[in-house]
Design a protein around this nucleic acid. Structure first.
Length: 883
RNA sequence: GGGCGCUUAGCUCAGUUGGUAGAGCACCGCCCUUACAAGGCGGUGGCCGCAGGUUCGAGUCCUGCAGCGCCCACCA
């Protein structure tokens, strides 16, 4: 922004000032929490993944948080918005692996240490991009407190938590089936598997009886290769068809071994043939069946889902990829006449949410958190209202998951992440779990110990984030002042992944809730309602939008669309129209500056004119509405209220009305208007600041000088208010609108000044007459004459109002036929209103049981519309006699 | 199978305790009125998904149905 000698540019150009203001904020450390406030407020920014750059969803979520943060800071509180980034285990490792792949390399070529170095390099790059984006968005994060989920403070919190849980027996190591991603070669949690309908096949295979190979049972499977690991065929115990078979042996085709027929309730006799092959090592249900019946668990895969060389597996299939093996086995079954039939079959297939590889249930050793003991207090915290979901219905989703929660598999076979702080001993079975780096086995004292190769699920460290960033496990001043945080702002897609885990970990380790409110916002979609994704090519990059329309326009749009509980379809047109709003603000302010004279805003101003008293009253009302909206997380209402006030009231009416005294009146009136228009501007700039920080800061500096900073909202809402001024101005606006309406419908040029006559009683006339200059200016009148109540005017267009009748003589304006048509249109409209109102009043029950105020309202509406109707009828008669 | 959400103007969506339906965009008119054409003024446009119920009164509360979407669990 320029010094005061230069006027602001005629057109809003955010690029000319947003970056400079952003620099001012960052360089002056403007967003460090103040030290001298009694009240504290804090939000932990959900740390973005260092997988690239921020997308529109981040911009949305971050804008909402910034609005809250700036608003609270302007209330004079000590505010911390904690900044950080997430290492995002799998996701980030994949990004770097893909980069290596493009160079024809693999992480194994580099080795673990070199690979992790590469990821750190990438982290620096991606993190830099992300922080740059945040600054362009105008986020008021405390830049001095940047954290990372793998920095030292986070790591020590992670080790502390792991060790404590282990010592309490809540972390354990177990061999069981996990969801295995054969491409990434790691276990993933249940949540990281996404199921989708896919086209597949249903292979019906004959399993011959061992004692009579001419007979057989038919089993159906979608994964025929798993029969290599079959341990049994199961039937329902009550299924008469197979009762005799239970306990007998079947020949497992292709495998040259026999398996028993077992009976288990798990089998649905209605489905398929009622015979199910049981493969304990490769199906979660089968695993349970196998356990009940003591079946052998035969693992048939390698880590990459190739067939392994277990002794029971026929040699010809060993080493084959799972799908190659499937093909070969189906062909072999067919050749042996054991393939009964093949059906097309649509079924759900689980794929890794990152790799999209088909997930295999796979038997491995993993680390688990015994979750129930952590879940119970976390459920209770929400039940008791110590944590509140906004919108509230999300608590149902939360409860549903939490009440059916499974132990959490926390180990991942990755290289990027927190190494599990457990060491295995070469000389004994003891596992040493330690906060530091132990040198010998805690069991036998042997120095032959080796750390677990695996890393922790990325959500393990994110789960500690609200307190690990504040110095926990030390008891720091930050913990004291800013924990519990006030609100978590996030999307519903990570309620289980992250929100639930933070609550569990927070309750467990701090004994307090990590946040009091959880504001769940919607997902951002494109204009067609599609989820934005790189593969679809429909992502809207926030930076491109900011470059084109400015950060404020984007932020205002996002705030305006932040309706709780519905997905946001982001249409660039919407951003464009809000850019136009910014332009409106820019130019209205420019007008104010051009006409300010020597005046300064004065929050104690006590203006005498109705126009000035009215605008300050309206500003006050707006301030209360904005405050209520923000308090209730109704961002769309806050934005809408400001839009309506700034554009619809301040610009459309106040500035136009103010021109009368700025241009024509005496010096005293002019000076008062200058002060009030500046004061009101100052007020709504502050109100708008949390949503649109750049333009408001720029204009604030124009208003108060280049060193001024918009930091408080303290004085807003202190004006006493003047209901009389408001009602007078409403009357004026009603008259002006009526005249404009006639002019508009009659296509009278705005340049043409017209004569108006108004009939009204003395009281109404006095009110309107006090604003005569304003009225004439806004309605573009050449002259205004006052008529006695009940007077008629021949040959005039008529607009009957609540307490007055406006006549616009037609001579030279329009023809009689046109006005007649307009009158008749209005007659129909008003006639309908009258009929409806009469109907309501003639209903005894309504009159008896509705509140007094409502009935009175209807009565006065009816009265008003009746007289309006009379006037229109009279006007119709007069016009017809003319024509 | 269980749960949740949505259905309002041509399009995208507001509508906080029930009290005669709103915005933006689009469209149609008149305007370069000395802040703004990224603008001003006026206007057209809606059985608020369907069917019941509660109520003097329902877009708003209750029940059922339909369509769309999401989440969870899953029959091999």
């Amino acid at each position: 922004m320029s010094n005061q000698a230069n006027e602001p540019a005629k057109t809003y150009d955010p690029q000319s000032f947003e970056p400079a203001i952003s620099d001012q904020w960052v360089n002056s450390d403007a967003f460090r929490p103040g030290l001298d406030a009694d009240e504290h407020y804090s939000i932990t920014l959900p740390p973005p993944n260092v997988t690239g750059s921020l997308h529109m969803g981040h911009a949305f979520s971050d804008t909402i948080q910034d609005i809250l943060i700036r608003w609270q800071r302007m209330q004079g509180k000590s505010v911390l918005w904690q900044l950080g980034l997430d290492h995002a285990g799998i996701a980030t490792q994949m990004v770097v692996e893909r980069q290596l792949d493009a160079q024809g390399a693999h992480r194994r070529d580099l080795g673990r240490e070199k690979f992790v170095e590469k990821v750190w390099e990438w982290k620096a790059e991606s993190g830099g991009v992300i922080l740059g984006q945040m600054k362009r968005l105008g986020l008021s994060l405390d830049w001095s407190r940047e954290r990372f989920t793998m920095d030292e403070s986070s790591s020590s919190a992670v080790r502390e938590v792991f060790v404590r849980l282990y010592e309490e027996g809540l972390i354990y190591r177990g061999k069981r089936l996990v969801n295995w991603d054969p491409v990434l070669e790691t276990a993933v949690s249940d949540l990281e598997v996404v199921y989708d309908e896919e086209q597949g096949h249903f292979w019906h295979i004959q399993y011959p009886h061992a004692d009579d190979p001419s007979r057989h049972v038919i089993v159906a499977t979608t994964r025929p290769e798993t029969m290599l690991g079959d341990g049994a065929v199961a039937v329902h115990p009550d299924d008469a068809r197979y009762r005799d078979l239970i306990g007998k042996e079947l020949i497992l085709p292709l495998c040259n071994r026999t398996i028993p027929v077992i009976a288990d309730d798990y089998v649905d006799p209605e489905f398929g043939t009622g015979c199910v092959k049981i493969t304990p090592a490769h199906d979660f249900n089968d695993y349970e069946v196998g356990r009940r019946h003591g079946l052998a668990v035969i693992n048939i895969f390698t880590d990459r889902a190739h067939i392994n060389d277990d002794a029971v597996i026929p040699e010809q299939y060993r080493g084959l990829d799972r799908y190659e093996a499937r093909e070969r086995m189906v062909a072999d079954l067919e050749a042996e006449g054991l393939l009964y039939k093949v059906e097309d079959h649509t079924h759900k297939v689980g794929r890794g949410d990152r790799s999209h590889a088909v997930i295999e249930p796979y038997l491995t050793d993993q680390w688990y958190v015994a979750i129930q003991e952590l879940a119970d207090p976390a459920i209770k915290a929400v039940e008791d209202g110590n944590i509140r979901f906004v919108p509230q219905h999300w608590e149902k989703t939360y409860f549903e998951w939490m009440r059916n929660i499974q132990d959490w598999c926390i180990s991942r076979q990755l290289w990027w992440g927190h190494r599990i702080p457990a060491w295995y001993c070469a000389d004994c079975e003891h596992i040493t779990v330690d906060r530091g780096t132990p040198e010998y086995c805690g069991g036998c004292g042997s120095r032959q110990i080796r750390q677990d190769e695996d890393v922790l699920d990325t959500w393990f460290s994110s789960g500690l984030w609200p307190f690990s960033t504040l110095g926990w496990p030390e008891s720091t001043r930050e913990m004291e002042n800013f924990y519990s945080t006030n609100v978590l702002v996030t999307g519903f897609d990570i309620i289980f992944f992250w929100v639930a885990r933070m609550i569990m970990m927070g309750m467990k380790f701090t004994g307090r809730v990590p946040f009091k409110d959880i504001y769940i916002h919607a997902l951002i979609r494109d204009a067609q309602g599609q989820k934005m994704s790189k593969s679809k090519g429909n992502v809207i990059d926030p930076l491109e939008i900011i470059d084109a329309y400015g950060a404020d326009a984007l932020r205002f749009t996002l705030a305006h669309m932040a309706t709780p509980g519905r997905d946001v379809k982001l249409d660039v047109k919407r951003i464009e129209s809000n850019r136009n709003f910014m332009n409106k603000i820019w130019n209205a302010s420019r007008f104010v500056f051009m006409n300010r004279g020597d005046a300064q805003p004065d929050v104690n101003v006590k203006p005498s004119s109705d126009v000035n008293r009215w605008i300050l009253t309206e500003l006050d009302r707006t301030a209360r509405e904005v405050e209520q909206a923000l308090t209730g997380y109704r961002f769309n209402e806050a934005a809408g209220t400001l839009y309506n006030f700034i554009w619809g009231i301040y610009c459309d009416w106040y500035v136009e009305a103010a021109k009368v005294s700025l241009y024509k009146d005496d010096a005293a009136a002019r000076a008062e208007t200058q002060i009030v228009m500046l004061t009101a501007l100052d007020g709504w700039l502050r109100l708008l600041h949390p949503i649109c920080p750049f333009i408001t800061e720029a204009l604030f500096q124009e208003l108060h000088g280049p060193d001024a900073r918009l930091v408080t909202a303290d004085w807003i809402g202190t004006y006493a208010g003047d209901a009389k001024a408001v009602s007078r101005m409403n009357r004026v606006m009603e008259v002006v609108t009526a005249i404009r309406s006639i002019r508009g419908e009659m296509n009278v040029s705005p340049a043409k000044k017209v004569v108006a006559r108004i009939s009204a009683n003395d009281a109404v006339r006095a009110e309107l007459e006090s604003q005569q200059k304003v009225l004439m200016s806004l309605a573009r009148l050449e002259s205004l004459e006052w008529l006695a109540e009940g007077a008629d005017v021949e040959g005039a267009a008529v607009a009957p109002l609540a307490d007055a009748i406006v006549f616009l003589p037609l001579a030279g304006l329009v023809d009689v036929a046109e006005e007649l048509a307009r009158i008749e249109k209005n007659l129909v409209k008003v006639g309908k209103d009258v009929a409806v109102l009469e109907g309501r009043l003639s209903n005894r029950k309504f009159v008896d049981s509705a509140p007094e105020a409502v009935v009175a309202g209807v009565r006065s509406d009816l009265e008003e519309n009746r007289s309006r109707l009379e006037e229109l009828k009279a006007a119709e008669v007069r016009l017809k006699s003319l024509g």
